[in-house]
Design a protein around this nucleic acid. Structure first.
Length: 572
RNA sequence: GGGCCGCUAGCUCAAUUGGGAGAGCACCGUCUUGUCAGGUCGGGGGUUAUGGGUUCGAGCCCCAUGCGGUCCA
């Protein structure tokens, strides 16, 4: 029961199931018994009604309801179960605090929007299974209790009772298992796999999440990308036909995407591309630019079209925004007037303090960056990595603020050619950008013995969409010697390699085929397709940011007896 | 691990300088034969997250804790 409207002589009841609402009418003239029962009904009760479906009187039609032309004229009603008054309204525009919704998740899931999300998620998974089955993939389950081989994130550990003092780990992904399946001759594998990472949560991160994990033997990078693109385009066109898709998906090299957008997962629904102007900045006498360049940093920026009219205080506010994104500072040039840079004169260029440069320099800057009269040029200086982060946040901010983002568009792209390694400043060592099983790009293997490890390209790729990373994959290493060399560069000694990875290295010696794959995240995908705000809205029973389940009250202490079984003691 | 915000009726929120705890919705009851955010009249409902402190007096000030959110490492 959704709601009841009692008019004294006639009672209307909205009956709800997962498909929607229908109005039931109780009249004392048709059935006095049913009418008397209907007087007692309350929201969220579970009832059984029989009656006649009939057309509503013309003046009572409700065009806002899909079933608004008909109603059920009830002659019998049975109360199957009463209900307490729910702690919040069961309606789409819920105002209740999310903690309350999570505490009563079973009520929250009654809301039509949540029901639609669950249904969409089912359809997505169904589509994936059908699609891959039709292409010869086998769905194979892999264990949830596996060996702990921490690579990036922290493992969830499960103590063993039979082997006291030893632990299983929950998989961060079935990476090694699917590679072993390739060695097994499975050729094409997939799994809707639950993955676990014991890390702090974010709005778009959960400690357990679901990935489509897939792997193929005898493939090149483009084979995997093609398959992935077909999967996503087919799925979107079938399940959310109102979404606009850009086809084919662009393939953007990593260096390119970083140069143009300052991020490896830019929102491509809008432009605002960046330009490196370190050379031009070097001509100024602005100390911030000069010292940045001296220290090996860059000066880079983008053009906000039509925003040259900002006032001085607008600019100060904008700089404050930039600082909130972590930026050390921001310079700008406001272009007044109209037309191309060559048409503009001295007083058309409003430079931020510090940038005292002749008009000729401003013209060249505007030309280099593709700005014209009426535009605003935003510039930032610093180490390349930081500048890219800051500018990328500013770019998103302007994309939003200038209304450049179309909610109905899905802008997919593949980012390819990620670096194989990145320098881990905290631990002072090389780390894998993707994971240690990623193959170097063709012809780059010899560079593994050189000094320029950061410049080695890999066969790792991401699928991005609207500013999110949706999938990540690579062509893998399938030779023992190469894999051992990578582990060596990552700083593992011979014993550690043998203890943690001996099993997979050994497997590579028994005829491992070349293979590669990709792992699309299901939660984020459904979030985007559903237009939901948070991944928590597409997961039936999500956890809070501190990793707790407010419905079950987990995690929770356990009995002393359980701890004894596991030979565990809680250290204070 | 750190920063910031929040916690007042079932829900969403208000409460001026430290002075009498409130509103809307929901809920309960009444009346109402075409409503669909039904309408009418009436009613009940509070350990102001928890513990401590300052004060003649604390929702408000101070300290600690808990829970939630959010950002950073």
């Amino acid at each position: 029961m959704d709601s009841r409207r009692d008019h004294g002589g006639v009672i209307f009841v909205d009956l709800r199931d997962r498909s929607g609402l229908v109005q039931v009418v109780f009249s004392p003239e048709l059935s006095p018994d049913a009418y008397r029962t209907a007087e007692q009904l309350r929201s969220e009760w579970v009832i059984q009604v029989s009656g006649t479906v009939r057309r509503r009187p013309p003046e009572s039609e409700n065009p806002t309801l899909p079933t608004g032309l008909v109603e059920v004229f009830a002659d019998e009603v049975t109360v199957l179960n009463a209900a307490l008054t729910p702690p919040f309204y069961i309606e789409d525009d819920v105002k209740a605090d999310e903690a309350l919704r999570l505490r009563y998740r079973y009520l929250d899931l009654r809301r039509p929007k949540m029901q639609r999300n669950l249904i969409l998620r089912h359809q997505v998974v169904k589509y994936i299974r059908d699609f891959l089955d039709a292409r010869g993939f086998l769905e194979i389950e892999t264990p949830i209790l596996i060996k702990s081989t921490p690579e990036g994130a922290r493992d969830y550990l499960v103590p063993s009772r039979l082997q006291r003092g030893s632990f299983y780990a929950l998989p961060q992904s079935p990476q090694q298992l699917k590679q072993l399946l390739m060695v097994s001759g499975v050729e094409r594998y997939f799994q809707i796999a639950r993955c676990f990472r014991d890390e702090d949560l974010r709005a778009d991160r959960q400690p357990e999440f679901t990935q489509l994990d897939l792997e193929m033997s005898f493939v090149e990078q483009e084979d995997v990308l093609q398959l992935t693109e077909e999967l996503y385009t087919g799925m979107v066109e079938k399940l959310t036909p109102d979404k606009k898709l850009v086809k084919p998906f662009p393939r953007i090299p990593y260096d390119d995407v970083m140069a143009r957008y300052g991020s490896d997962k830019p929102d491509l629904r809008f432009g605002l591309e960046m330009t490196d102007v370190t050379d031009l900045a070097g001509e100024t006498e602005f100390r911030v630019f000069l010292s940045t360049i001296e220290q090996g940093g860059i000066v880079k920026g983008f053009v906000a079209p039509g925003q040259g009219h900002y006032t001085g205080s607008d600019m100060r506010r904008l700089e404050e925004t930039a600082r909130e994104f972590g930026a050390a500072g921001m310079s700008h040039v406001r272009l007044q007037g109209e037309g191309s840079p060559s048409d503009l004169v001295d007083e058309h260029f409003l430079l931020s303090p510090g940038l005292r440069m002749p008009v000729e320099w401003s013209r060249r800057l505007a030309e280099t960056m593709g700005a014209s009269g009426g535009d605003l040029i935003v510039l930032m200086a610093g180490p390349a990595r930081r500048v890219n982060q800051w500018l990328s946040s500013m770019r998103d901010y302007f994309g939003e603020r200038l209304g450049l983002i179309d909610d109905d568009t899905l802008s997919f792209a593949f980012v390819t050619g990620f670096p194989l390694f990145e320098w881990d400043e905290n631990n002072n060592r090389w780390d894998s950008s993707h994971h240690p099983f990623t193959s170097p790009a063709d012809g780059k293997e010899s560079k593994l013995d050189g000094d320029d490890l950061g410049g080695i390209e890999s066969k790792a790729y991401d699928l991005i969409c609207n500013g999110s990373e949706l999938a990540s994959g690579s062509i893998r290493i399938h030779r023992r010697d190469l894999q051992e060399k990578i582990f060596g560069i990552l700083g593992y000694n011979r014993e550690q390699v043998e203890e943690r990875f001996g099993h997979i290295l050994e497997a590579f010696e028994y005829g491992a085929p070349p293979h590669g794959g990709i792992a699309p995240g299901i939660d984020r995908l459904v979030t985007i397709l559903a237009g939901a705000e948070s991944i928590r809205d597409v997961i039936a029973f999500p956890k809070t940011q501190s990793g707790t389940d407010l419905l079950f009250g987990s995690p929770s202490p356990v009995d002393a007896a359980q701890l004894r079984d596991l030979a565990l003691r809680i250290a204070e």
